[in-house]
């Protein structure tokens, strides 16, 4: 469980890892290969589907997957803030300028500003797609053990990239705590974060400067320790992720078929959507 996190709106890797290591749902027992295959299919479907109803069905399916893993819904709602904010910051520009019928409009400073029906639909689709993928992605990481993720990364990435990836994942918890420690230290000395831009900038330069210095010094110590233990640049993976079961392969196959149908509908025959 996390010592603390930056915010309840940002996913906490310690909490994610805690659920991944300690959960016992049927999703936890599913092979990581199967879940990774399904994530790829969900990402492809979110990209290919353009009908709002089908996108909504995709989201509901992803949410059902998350809940089947016995993961906390309230936590997920808090973590939705991040992708929702990103969609909103982009869509806010398009919701007013998208061609379509006016839903609501006001005259402001001599010009007419309007929100169109197409603008609202565009924002809805962007939001639901984002939430569908985030929900599935979090469900995957919150239902998978670190050793399995490490195995998958080692198998799928070039050696150097995999080594940096796996080392980064291990360092992540330490550096996150370190940055939070410095921020806590500022708070504890009654140094609130609301200051002038100049002072604020110097304050955070100190935080990140210290974080980098500490990180480099720790990296050098770790490198020496690893070299003295015979490290040659290859991260050993001690445990293999289990192969997908027959049921897992079947689920992925169904997903691939659904994706193929979605591609066909999008590019060749949109009349298959009758509503």
């Amino acid at each position: 469980m996390s010592r603390r996190s930056y915010s309840k709106h940002i996913p906490d890797f310690r909490l994610v890892t805690h659920f991944g290591e300690s959960g016992n749902s049927m999703i936890h027992s599913m092979s990581l290969w199967t879940k990774a295959g399904l994530l790829a299919i969900v990402v492809c479907l979110a990209t290919v589907l353009i009908d709002p109803i089908l996108i909504s069905i995709l989201y509901i399916t992803c949410l059902a997957f998350y809940l089947a893993a016995k993961l906390p819904f309230k936590v997920l709602l808090g973590w939705y803030t991040l992708p929702a904010m990103f969609v909103f910051t982009l869509a806010i520009m398009f919701i007013f300028t998208e061609p379509g019928d006016e839903v609501i409009g006001v005259d402001l400073f001599g010009s007419h500003i309007q929100v169109t029906d197409n603008g609202i639909v565009l924002m809805y689709k962007l939001l639901i797609r984002a939430l569908a993928v985030v929900t599935f992605s979090l469900a995957l990481f919150m239902s998978s053990r670190y050793s399995h993720i490490a195995y998958l990364a080692r198998r799928m990435m070039p050696r150097t990239l995999a080594t940096v990836f796996l080392l980064s994942y291990r360092f992540l918890f330490v550096t996150s705590d370190e940055v939070t420690d410095v921020i806590d230290a500022i708070h504890s000395r009654n140094g609130g974060l609301i200051r002038g831009v100049s002072r604020q900038t110097r304050l955070f330069a100190g935080i990140f400067g210290l974080a980098f210095i500490h990180a480099f010094e720790r990296a050098e110590r770790i490198a020496k320790a690893m070299e003295s233990r015979g490290f040659t640049g290859d991260m050993p993976v001690m445990e293999h992720a289990p192969r997908p079961s027959v049921a897992g392969v079947s689920v992925v196959t169904v997903g691939v078929v659904v994706l193929a149908i979605s591609v066909y509908i999008r590019y060749f025959d949109s009349s298959m959507i009758w509503w």
């Binding site: 150097t160 080594t163 980064s168 360092f171 550096t175 996150s176 990180a215 990296a219 050098e220």
Partner: peptide, 9 residues
């Protein structure tokens, strides 16, 4: 490698 990983984190 360790420095790159630390920079990443």
């Amino acid at each position: 490698l360790a420095i790159a990983a630390m920079c990443t984190s």
